[in-house]
Simulated scan of single mutants.
Amino acid sequence: MQVKAYGAQSGDHPLEPMRIQRRDVGAHDVRIDIAYCGICHSDLHQARGEWPGTHYPCVPGHEIVGKVAAVGAHVSGLRPGDLVGVGCIVDSCQHCVDCEAGLENYCDGMIGTYNFPTADAPGWTLGGYSQQLVVHQRYVLRIRHPEPQLAAVAPLLCAGITTYSPLRHWNAGPGKKVGIVGIGGLGHMGIKLAHAMGAHVVAFTTSEGKREAARALGADATVLSSDPAQMAAHAGSFDLIVNTVAAPHDLDAFLALLKRDGALTLVGAPATAHPSPNVFNLIMKRRTLAGSMIGGILETQEMLDFCAEHNIVSDIELIAADQINNAFERMLKGDVKYRFVIDTTTL
């Protein structure tokens, strides 16, 4: 089946309308009518060939929400009309230790929602800037938010799980002091989630003007990370810091804020490496410098259910498809609070 989509024909051309092929619904497949798709920085990097290995045409999008349109003969628990989502994963080996643990995001055979190899035409996956998607039922997530919130749920499929996973893994909650570095698409979700978990939340920003925004999102305090005095006031006091910034910067400044056995977890992916941290900032207090990447399917469903229970959605700006290229440029300038979402009915 051919459907409308928006994608890039090359890295040096803007995204444009196109038609793409979707496979027939197999026995274990679900066809989804996509209602909304969030825009992630990863979409821009991949579409513009700034990350290696982009296949063209490239149709980005891995923050997908919509309704079930059809199900295969062996699909159970899903039926037409159900509100569902698809995140960053549409396949995996399903039998390695990671998949068996529900951590398909770390499977060596993980297939991402776009630009990963597949038997479907054209030979690589095409993402959610499109009208429909066909995906194995294992990777379809139930959405329990009310339908009017659906557009704002879309970014939870990437920004939400990317921050939820480290917060859960490092046990953010009552009695824990948690820092969130950066108040953008990822960071604003990290603040909301850590607050809902009951942690004492401190937001770090380089912008004095974001203090009020951080407070509105649920931060108990905000630190201007470019001010040494403000940073020093929090030395040795954090259980966990989740760093969402996708640009190289000094990690030692944040390592020094951790308690003994505290963790600094990186979820932002800069194009070039961070400066190497001073090893003594790690060994003297048994601190951990760690990384985390999205989350598995079970954890992503857990995150969606948690967000529905606590009425958490992303702060978004809804756009039509013909505004995508402008949204890319604005995103590069940080001119969005805090996530663009495409209304795919405008394709």
Score class of each variant (00 low, 15 high):
L193D: 09
L193F: 10
V336L: 12
G127F: 10
P270R: 09
F204L: 10
I319R: 04
H95K: 01
E309I: 05
T162K: 00
T272M: 03
T54C: 03
I316Y: 12
I111D: 00
M1K: 04
S292I: 01
H136Q: 14
A151P: 12
A101Q: 02
D322I: 00
D12G: 09
H169I: 03
S226A: 12
H188D: 04
V245M: 06
A121R: 14
F328L: 07
A216S: 15
E63P: 08
L150W: 11
A216T: 14
D343E: 00
H28M: 09
R215I: 02
V267T: 10
G72S: 02
A121C: 07
R22K: 07
A151M: 12
Q131Y: 06
G66T: 02
D98K: 12
A196K: 08
G268P: 00
Q149W: 12
A290H: 13
A203C: 04
F254N: 00
A194L: 10
T54G: 11
G291M: 11
D98P: 11
V71M: 09
D343M: 10
L282N: 04
G128S: 08
A199Y: 00
C58L: 14
G128L: 05
K192Y: 01
I294C: 06
V65F: 06
A152I: 05
H234S: 06
L304A: 05
I319T: 06
W170T: 09
R339S: 12
V3I: 14
D108F: 13
T346K: 07
I39R: 04
L15C: 15
Q132F: 13
G190S: 12
R330K: 15
P228D: 06
L193V: 15
I183G: 09
S92A: 15
C93L: 03
A229P: 00
R211L: 12
S165V: 01
T113C: 13
A290R: 08
D315G: 10
L83Q: 08
A154W: 03
T162Y: 06
S92P: 08
R31I: 01
P122R: 06
P146D: 08
G218L: 02
G53N: 12
E329G: 14
A101H: 06
C107W: 03
Q137R: 14
G72P: 07
G102Y: 07
W124M: 06
L186K: 11
V178H: 04
A119Q: 15
G109F: 07
A199D: 07
A229G: 01
P14W: 02
E16W: 00
S314W: 05
